[in-house]
Design a protein around this nucleic acid. Structure first.
Lengths: 208, 208, 208, 208
DNA sequence: TATGAATGAGTCTTCATTCAT
DNA sequence: TATGAATGAAGACTCATTCAT
């Protein structure tokens, strides 16, 4: 009524706060509406149900992150085909990628918190798996290529799967424990070293 | 009634199943009692409230794991003081430690699931942090010692903190995705290589 | 908007479907509006409230049937005064009347369903009584005349009242169980025999 | 608490009143509880849900009437096999049967009202059909027998089905319009004459 | 004519918890 | 030890209705 969708925005804001505070299951629509200064009916004018409200808060961010992830994977795949290239560049690329990824994640800081730690009971409970799937293709291709060049066997699927997980966990962890983007980035430098070394170790000849 | 604590045991068992199925918040005490064939009053004779019931299920395991963790840390600390020792032994020790740790975790398989994925809303929501704290002391001492021997600066606290996390995450991940203990152990071999390489990379001279 | 009363018609149509499906009480104005592709406000422009909407659907048919019923009663009354006539003609007239009545009822088949089985909670809950009242006058006159001619006492009021009811129930029953008008009519032939015999039995001398 | 099931009884009583007043759909559990002086939780201790509450009120009566109906049908069937007997006795039997049936119905007067006019939306909406089914077998056997004796064709199924309906409707009608059992019975005498004549008319030779 | 927004009371139902017995 | 009974607040959600625009 006032101006464009003011109430809806207020509802979304209050809902985000409530979900962050109490988690998806613990959140109360009543409480959200009270904070927003409207009746429950108003909420149901804008949103189909609790899940739909959560969706509205979380989907845009999720889509953004998903799109970015796919783009990164595609770039990696293309780089692999064209220039079977220098390691230093890889490291440099990784750094850039990390910076971009972190930036997107920190742009929607609390939405990410919501998805990662407060979504139990909603359909986003295991949304991390989606990203594992996305990165898996790229990582596998990389592993195959690298193994060929080094003349060693390709690490088994389970291990590769786990490596993706641990890399994603690095982002999750930093996001969950370091609220400042700059510090997060600088910390991620060390982490990348760590992860890269680990990754290389998978391609060492067993006999050595 | 029958013998000593039959009812209590039955309640605990049904509660565990319910918590596993629906999570801490989603679980219903009524439903637990119905499955156990008693009335809610009976439950409240044995347990103060919902949280207390969850405690009773989860605490013993948690204590066991905590004790074992502390013991491992202590052993490591002692080993560090006495025998500034051979690397191969370290690797060997790590393997042994991993085996023991996995065994304890898999002994109480579903309690661990409960704690790691179904405790949102309870005070155990972030119980992993406790273990990070426990291992942190040991890991720091190790880092200091190792840095001294290699003549490089000690990695910063944040990084060390994160390393612990990633190591614990390795256990969490395997526990969450591999129900078979033997397979878990064999997989962990690869993972250890990965983690150890990452760890070593933190002590490489930057100039190199 | 488009042409004259397009929206109103669409609302009426959707409302009829909803009332038929869920009954008066179970029907939802929202749901009706959604199906009609308008907002609730639009509905309230055309109709005062839920009852008024139901009225609009049901009244025309009700009036039509009421008018026809009164006409039949009047014809019967007039026939009674003029030609204290032949029985065969009666039967023949009855058959004609039945045909006409059925035709009107089947013309508005689902409105009749609505009134007879889905109007609980509305003011039409007992609309059948109206028709009992209408036919009662005619039937009583007929009974008096017939009793006089046969020299037997007139059946008591209660019985006469009931007879009307049972005759109407015959229509109701056929309407509710036989969707095809032709079959309904042919079935009604047997029923008329039945009803006529019953009616005659009320005028038999008790001594016989 | 007070004495045996006092609250439950009070709930049942208030519920019956509310259902009678507003119908199944219109009744409000809140309102029932308020009248009974308990909270909604109490109601849900005794009854699973709204339907279950309605069941508890209605089932015993329904079972009683059903049992009695089946017994009557069985008696009729047996009488048919043994003594292909005197008509006057039949009439007499019918009278007795009617008396018994009416007595059972009037014993639970308002439960019957509930079932017949206030059950829309519940699973008893069409409970009358059950009774049609019950009586249909008996009536058909009777029709076959009678047709054989009189040397006329058996009336078609549809007509027989309708006859049952109309006979049951007689009970329904009297129950719905005459609150006094004695008056109802005396009225039913006339009705029986009517119905019997109608029934006989179905077996008259068409040529005559 | 009709929309979009909102109300407020109401729906049935479930919850953890209590307590006399 | 445990039951049976009950509380009271809250859960998500739907309702018919209103009204400024």
């Amino acid at each position: 009524m006032n101006n464009e969708h003011e109430t809806k925005e207020r509802l979304l804001e209050c809902a985000r706060a409530e979900f962050l505070e109490k988690g998806y299951q613990g959140a109360s629509l009543r409480s959200i509406c009270k904070k927003a200064g409207v009746t429950t009916g108003a909420l149901y004018f804008f949103f189909k149900d609790k899940e739909d409200l959560f969706d509205a808060i979380v989907e845009p961010t999720l889509e953004k992150v998903k799109a970015m992830s796919m783009q990164h994977v595609n770039q990696e795949l293309m780089a692999l085909q064209n220039v079977p290239g220098a390691e230093e560049d890889d490291m440099h690329d990784d750094r850039n990628a990390t910076e971009q990824i972190l930036h997107v994640l920190y742009s929607d800081y609390d939405i990410c918190q919501l998805l990662l730690t407060k979504s139990q009971g909603s359909k986003y409970e295991n949304c991390l798996d989606t990203f594992v799937d996305i990165f898996e293709t790229g990582q596998k291709a990389l592993a195959v290529e690298q193994a060929k060049q080094l003349g060693v066997p390709v690490p088994d699927d389970y291990t590769l799967h786990w490596v993706i997980h641990i890399q994603l966990d690095a982002y999750v962890h930093v996001l969950l424990h370091e609220p400042d983007e700059q510090k997060a980035l600088s910390h991620m430098d060390n982490v990348l070293t760590y992860l890269l070394s680990g990754w290389m170790a998978l391609f060492r000849k067993k006999s050595e």
